[in-house]
Design a protein around this nucleic acid. Structure first.
Lengths: 344, 344
DNA sequence: AAATATTGTGGGAGCGCTCCCAAACTTGTT
DNA sequence: AACAAGTTTGGGAGCGCTCCCACAATATTT
């Protein structure tokens, strides 16, 4: 035998492996696919040859024969233009791809782009025949979108509860409302009463739910809602956190809840520039618990959201749907956790 | 005929389309693949049927028969953990996927992850049989990596000139050195003499080249290099820009060049906190020209790098290699541009 | 020991394309 | 009118798997 085929790609196929190990194509196939009815002895024999030649079944052939490509589509909207400084989608993407790889699925990526015709783009997405299923970031989702997704006839999971038709669709989401509420209750427990909120991008359920949590916490504490303390134009970006905070500073607040850490960090800058102390004059809480929350001065109290796990559950859920182990809708809410640091 | 097959996926195949349009499988195949030898009249006839039924050839079948899957792999290292606040990779990713889609290729994504065994991960990457070619972010690249890439026997393109073996490998890169030099020459022209530099993450050619440009500009102006004015620990992150600037402030500089916009923005914060004015006391320049550079106060002078085009050229180059239209190494340097705003 | 159930193995057909070759039809040339 | 050369079309083989069914080998029951 040769010596250094160890690393390169061998162009052997099932048939070759079968011949080399003295069995039939079918048996090799069974071994490769972990089918039960193979005797231990032949299994070993075949596996040895497979190892030796570093044989990997041809994915296209497999996909053609089985009508499953082991590919999942990931659709994420305008990742760049809008959510510039927010690493949420990067982390999510990483979570999804890692989870997919761990179960031998390949992720193919669809990112909308400003300078590309949207309708042509979505035609491409929905006509795709490669992906067995899709994971969709909810920001893209509206009623007609869900309809097309359904028409496609393949399973999908939405990351983030959609506004539309969410009773029937499959999604994975964090307990945004509960998290926000926990944060605001924490602020109240610290004796804060005039609590502002810097909201997230409108049109996203995460923003809606976090605002809802803020409102509900105040209501339960019998603190009247003051609309002037809710910034209308937050959008999860660094810039909007800064300007949002500037506005709130006109209303002598003693605490603020920012709908994500990025905005909280820039709000902290605004607070400091106004000559106020954190947390003595103004306490501040964020949401996400990403890297930044530990690098701010003082460190940021925040709500930890399991972004990576969001991807994880989405992948597992999708594959469960794919393999018929579970019936849609598959819906999963992941718990969040209050992380108290120095900013409150 | 039915009425609403307009949008759903039809499960017709070439054979069906052939029957419906009264020609043979082969002819339909020719039409689909834009082969020349089809008479105008049959082409039209077939196209009409294809449109009507929204027929798309089955990618797996096509891949199996042609041994080309129209898939490109994208490999990006530790996007999250390290380059947290730097949207460079997000924009790049968007550029690549958009370019790929426009030529009917699907991008599959490989992201390294901290909590996954690296060697297993790379085994997966290199044993992948799906992708026809790969686009690799240079941060991952070392000699043994390139060797395995070569062994794979499929074309690849590195984004960002690698340190190793770059004479033989295919890459696309920006004129980092030239850009840095333009920036520093600009600062010198403004009368600045004590110019600091906040460097990028070590181990990347972009960091190296930008530092090189800084040095060469100073040398050409006969300004001695003062090692104390070069921060050793920059890494393109927000935090490192801030702390780097704090250090430089001990050395009464009158200008600073940050190796990217993210660090420039946080350096500006440090400058302001020290009570100094921009650009009167300290002029500052960045690199990249991403969204941030327009939201800083004052707006940031920077070097515009064509990130999206980087992805574009990488995809086109890869496909040229794939289709044998060009011989490796394919190497392309993209021009950069000095954008003067208010910070200098 | 024979009959039956269980487990293990091989071969054929088929997934939906591409690509080659041969046949049929055009067109042009002498 | 006969032939060469070019253009257009159809059919077969094959890409490398999966999956079903039939058969062989072994284990279990009576």
């Amino acid at each position: 035998m040769g010596t250094d085929f160890d690393n390169g790609i061998t162009d052997l196929n099932l048939e070759d492996i079968a011949r080399l190990s003295g069995v039939s194509r079918s048996t090799v196939s069974r071994v490769v696919n972990h089918h039960p009815n193979v005797s231990e002895i032949t299994r070993r024999k075949v596996l040895e040859i497979i190892e030796r030649y570093n044989f990997k079944p041809h994915p296209a052939a497999r996909a053609l024969a089985s009508q499953r490509a082991n590919i999942i589509g990931i659709l994420i909207p305008h990742i760049v233009s809008d959510l510039f400084t927010d690493p949420f989608f990067s982390i999510l993407l990483q979570g999804i791809t890692t989870a997919a790889n761990s179960v031998n699925y390949s992720p193919i990526l669809w990112l909308t782009s400003a300078n590309v015709d949207e309708s042509a783009f979505y035609d491409q997405v929905f006509n795709d025949r490669l992906a067995d299923g899709m994971i969709v970031a909810s920001a893209t989702v509206n009623a007609s979108f869900i309809k097309r997704l359904d028409q496609r006839g393949k399973p999908y999971i939405i990351i983030g509860r959609p506004f539309t038709a969410y009773e029937q669709s499959s999604y994975v989401d964090s307990e945004n409302e509960q998290g926000a509420r926990m944060m605001v209750e924490h602020l109240i427990k610290q004796g804060r009463r005039r609590i502002g909120m810097i909201t997230g991008r409108s049109g996203l359920t995460s923003s809606h739910d976090r605002l809802q949590g803020y409102i509900s916490a105040l209501q339960h504490a019998d603190i009247p809602i003051d609309m002037r303390l809710i910034t209308p134009a937050g959008d999860y970006s660094d810039a909007s956190g800064y300007t949002g905070m500037k506005l709130l500073l006109h209303h002598r607040i003693d605490a603020v809840f920012a709908a994500n850490d990025v905005m909280a960090a820039s709000a902290m800058r605004a607070i400091k520039e106004a000559g106020l102390r954190i947390p003595e004059d103004i306490a501040i809480g964020g949401f996400d618990d990403m890297g930044i929350s530990r690098t701010t001065e003082p460190q940021l109290t925040t709500v930890q959201q399991p972004i990576t796990q969001l991807g994880d559950y989405a992948v597992r859920g999708l594959i469960d749907l794919l393999e018929g182990r579970v019936e849609p809708p598959f819906q999963q809410m992941l718990p969040v956790k209050l992380i108290v640091r120095q900013s409150t």
